[in-house]
């Protein structure tokens, strides 16, 4: 860590017009790409119809386009932080704090282990049991009175396959 009082002059950096303009255009372009990517039917099953079952079985399929959208968003965020917020030209300390929030935020995601791990246990959990809390019928294998909603076949199947 640097001394508290570095004697040399720390002149602040003035970001040039060129950098600002380029960044803005990049952001703008990235946004258009995001919209196109989201509106276009390019998720796994659509791109690879032959592997439809595979994608339905593997829940990661839904994440493909999300990953694209979030990847672009992350790119935009990084550009904003680097050039608009001037972190690119700032001291190491500022860089540290610019990163810290995002690192701390990822720590929160540890709790996903809980939700990932729950289905591995024998108790089926976390379904909606609307209206009642009565014990399930022990003789029936399905057990949980799962409410199916009109037009919800797809959601329901994803839900069940996940259990």
């Amino acid at each position: 860590m640097a001394e508290a009082h570095a004697e040399e002059h720390h002149g602040h950096h003035v970001t040039s017009n060129r950098v600002l303009n380029t960044t803005f255009l990049q952001l703008f372009a990235a946004m258009v790409i995001t919209i196109l990517a989201a509106r276009a039917p390019i998720d796994g099953p659509a791109l690879f119809p032959g592997f439809k079952d595979f994608f339905l079985k593997w829940e990661y399929a839904w994440g493909a386009t999300n990953a694209i959208a979030l990847g672009i968003a992350a790119f935009k965020a990084v550009q904003v932080i680097r050039f608009f917020m001037g972190v690119q030209y700032a001291s190491g300390l500022i860089k540290l704090y610019a990163v810290m929030g995002f690192v701390g935020f990822t720590w929160l995601y540890i709790l996903f282990w809980d939700y990932v791990g729950r289905p591995w246990e024998p108790v089926r959990g976390w379904e909606t049991v609307p209206g009642t809390a009565l014990p399930r019928d022990p003789d029936s294998d399905a057990g949980v009175p799962y409410k199916l909603y009109p037009g919800k076949e797809e959601g329901a199947s994803a839900e069940m396959s996940h259990e």
Binding site: A38, D43, T65, N66, A69, A73, V80, I81, M85
Partner: peptide, 24 residues
């Protein structure tokens, strides 16, 4: 104030794809 405002922008950069552009 600028940093703050960029942060507001930053949040929206993520909110937009997450709420408005959910891919199927």
């Amino acid at each position: 104030v600028g940093l703050y405002w960029h942060f507001v922008d930053l949040v929206w950069i993520f909110l937009y794809p997450l709420f408005y552009l959910i891919p199927r």
